[in-house]
């Protein structure tokens, strides 16, 4: 592939789509593992899963690739947003955006920024502590940590806002990634769109259920 490809507007879209779908695949792993807290076994399954994720060398490498993907997705979004601002130097006085597109498809930058803020909070809650424990070769009970973190109502609120931002980001992003990759087909695109909607809703409901159920002591 010529290096010029990634400099074209199409190449940049393709990169956004690819990194986006890669992050989506991470969500699947993350939500599946976390859903084990609903097994009501005092977090046993969950903790052994978390322990595996923290120590397995393959996962360690994937984690680095994941951060790389995230950073590329963010930096690319920033460059594109700045370029798009330059493409319309004088703003319209009146815009009827609702007439031609959904608000969330027009707000991917804001939704993404909210997600990033949430992610920083989220990583500082869990990821950093886990890392320190691995580094010091200590046992780490992530399940207990979750229970403690989610005992504060304002934390639960922050998580809900983060999950809602994720939901809308996915509602547009999932099908948008396929379009960017050129994967559009009369037969399959309606299906991709449907899967995208259901995926966004189910994943986000599951994620939202975790802090809420812990806060309400439904998960013991």
């Amino acid at each position: 592939m010529s290096t010029g490809f990634l400099k074209t507007s199409v190449g940049k879209k393709v990169l956004m789509g690819l990194t986006g779908l890669f992050l989506v695949s991470f969500l699947v792993v993350h939500v599946s593992l976390n859903a084990t807290i609903f097994m009501m076994d005092g977090g046993q399954t969950f903790n052994s899963g978390a322990d595996f994720m923290a120590h397995n060398p393959v996962i360690r490498i994937v984690e680095i690739v994941l951060f790389a993907g995230l950073i590329i997705h963010i930096l690319q979004a920033l460059t594109l947003t700045l370029a798009n601002k330059k493409a319309r130097p004088v703003a319209y006085a009146k815009i009827d955006g609702a007439a031609n597109s959904s608000w969330y498809s027009r707000s991917m930058g804001i939704l993404g920024s909210l997600l990033l803020l949430f992610l920083v909070t989220h990583l500082s809650h869990f990821w950093i502590d886990t890392k320190i424990a691995v580094f010091k070769h200590q046992e780490h009970n992530t399940y207990l940590e979750m229970k403690e973190v989610f005992s504060h109502w304002y934390v639960v609120l922050i998580y809900l806002v983060g999950v809602i931002a994720l939901c809308y980001h996915l509602l547009h992003g999932f099908q948008s990634a396929f379009q960017s990759l050129g994967l559009n087909h009369k037969k399959y695109t309606p299906l991709i769109k449907k899967v995208g909607v259901w995926f966004s809703i189910i994943v986000c409901l599951l994620f939202a259920a975790m802090p809420v159920c812990m806060f309400l002591n439904i998960v013991q």
């Binding site: 507007s9 879209k13 594109l80 330059k86 493409a87 031609n100 597109s101 547009h172």
Partner: peptide, 16 residues
């Protein structure tokens, strides 16, 4: 790209 058009984010406003 040289003309300075922006980048598509698949909002679908054009089609509409």
């Amino acid at each position: 790209d040289e003309e300075g058009f922006g980048n598509c984010t698949n909002t679908g406003a054009c089609e509409a």
